[in-house]
Nucleic acid binder design. Sequence first.
DNA 1: CATGAATGAGATTTCATTCAT
DNA 2: TATGAATGAAATCTCATTCAT
Lengths: 197, 197, 197, 197
Amino acid sequence: MSPLNRQQQLDQIRDERREQIKQAALKMFACRGYTGTKTSMIAKEASISEGLIYRYFNSKEELFITLVQELMEEARSELENVGFLPGTPFEQIRTLTINILDEDNIHAFMLMERARKADDVPEKVTQIFEGVSTNVLIEPIIPIFVKGQQSGEFSPGEPRRILSWYFTIINSLLTQEEMDEEYGLPDVDVLMRILTK
Amino acid sequence: MSPLNRQQQLDQIRDERREQIKQAALKMFACRGYTGTKTSMIAKEASISEGLIYRYFNSKEELFITLVQELMEEARSELENVGFLPGTPFEQIRTLTINILDEDNIHAFMLMERARKADDVPEKVTQIFEGVSTNVLIEPIIPIFVKGQQSGEFSPGEPRRILSWYFTIINSLLTQEEMDEEYGLPDVDVLMRILTK
Amino acid sequence: MSPLNRQQQLDQIRDERREQIKQAALKMFACRGYTGTKTSMIAKEASISEGLIYRYFNSKEELFITLVQELMEEARSELENVGFLPGTPFEQIRTLTINILDEDNIHAFMLMERARKADDVPEKVTQIFEGVSTNVLIEPIIPIFVKGQQSGEFSPGEPRRILSWYFTIINSLLTQEEMDEEYGLPDVDVLMRILTK
Amino acid sequence: MSPLNRQQQLDQIRDERREQIKQAALKMFACRGYTGTKTSMIAKEASISEGLIYRYFNSKEELFITLVQELMEEARSELENVGFLPGTPFEQIRTLTINILDEDNIHAFMLMERARKADDVPEKVTQIFEGVSTNVLIEPIIPIFVKGQQSGEFSPGEPRRILSWYFTIINSLLTQEEMDEEYGLPDVDVLMRILTK
DNA sequence: CATGAATGAGATTTCATTCAT
DNA sequence: TATGAATGAAATCTCATTCAT
């Protein structure tokens, strides 16, 4: 094997390990919060030794911040792409909603919820959310919503306000695991009625 | 001072202290979660020494459990009394909603939310919520809602399901502090529309 | 009531209280050792408030030391008086043995045992026992024992050594509560045989 | 190093550490009792950090209970093996006595004494001693003693009673450190006379 | 790179002592 | 004098992080 390939292989292992740790941390932080998650739990969830975390992240804090930042970036990216989805404004936002409700996202959303609302997170995370409030995330959706209002697909009213509530509600539904057992998540089209009616 | 008065006075001091500690703990647990709240913070918030907490509660865990149980009891009691409020079913549930949205309740609701959803709480708290699910709490409201449906005040549909979503949404709105700054909580009557359609 | 009597009365109350505390402390220290006894237990045993102990003793340590010193003094006094008891040397030591085996002494003996053997006692107590070793206590008995040897009542052998073992054994029997249930303490005359052979 | 060896090596380290902690704890508990022994002392005696104790034992209490149980088991085992020692009943019990008087056992005996007599020990330890009283330990020796009585090696009398006293006395002598300085422990053969005479 | 034993700073809890009443 | 609520120093215990292997 050439030295180059050797290096590539190592890099790949590193990337995989890093991802593995992040996934485990995401799950644990989502379920137990920042202080409630012990590094030993993350290691166990990731099936690695406790010490190994520190070869990929300088500290529990850095791991948490990294997660929040990356999830934030993903969310931002997802929202910015809505305008490029096919279909009418209604169909674009409907697709976005479906994507968000995907259960693979559940831990990500729970983590973000907690990170934003809880006071027991690193200073820097608080700052991230101060700088980038929910409303900033909503920003790229506003013109789309307005277009839908003009075409009559959406009900009239202050766009930012309506969208803010809409995402708040989706968020809260996502993190209400308990509901699943009885009724599951509400149908997408029921939710869309919040915007149309 | 007579011995009787002396004893009464001591009892009163104990009651006040206990209440003081519970209030401080409620606030801290609500904002920072169970593991994120250090006993030193509770003591500081209550302006007492750390040791004193332990003359009133055997442990941080017991303090937390006590809070959850008492809040649960209050909630149950509040919901059971709705039927005895004056007015039509619509007015009764409207009054309940106003009571819930009262900002004095904010910490109580946040604490309950976290206690129910987080995995970093004492075993016993998990059990409390397993035994008494949200649906049990909703139970006493159902007949009232049905009466409202019959009189045409409320929209048709499966009562338990509609009410479950209704309270989920109220819950989530209450715990979204961030919104306050921009738009505050939605008006009661806007929320009631979820039930009336 | 005259001022003098008033004063006397107060003094008497003080003495009684002090005695009450000492008795309670003796029992607790005997059963649970120095560090194992909490001042709150002593207070409870004496049926007084926790704070009151400190109006009679400056500290738990002082209370303990006082007890040890007084018990030591009593023991010394008891042993010094043996020579003035009526009867032959055998009868004198027999009477002493009966007095020691009195069950009212059990706590006193247990306390002394622990105070002497345990390392978790105040420095000063250790010093007391260094200064006044068991052998010093035995000293006044030696001439009596020797007289008994000369008269043939006791078996020959080095007096200090024989007496040292004798008291060690009595001590140990006294503190073996468990035995009571099955066989009680050995009969005085059985014990005396250790000396007579 | 092969993975197998690596695992063996780690196991060995764990065993050694555990033993090291138990030895240190044994010494401290023996000298200072349960409450009188601080975990910091155990750590210092074992030359490890305080925290490490808790990777091997869940609590100071568990450490203490473990020690008592294991010592109890050893004692039981030792006593049960007496019948298989070579020689006559007299020689068997003589060998047992020598083994007990071994100064390596001193801490073990002191710890057991304290654990049995003191009231400041964990509940569970009290239960252990309730379940397995001294007499139960003596049980396997009784037939041996009876055989010795029949052969005339031992003096007549109720075996359980005589043996109970015998071990009580040996116990007490073992824990009388003070004696060492002056006369040391009595000779085995002197002690055996308690049984023969 | 990977492990997990070990550390030590910090959290929870206890309890001798003080102090307002 | 007597009480018991309150304190704070010290004990027990936890866990993020380091380090020898």
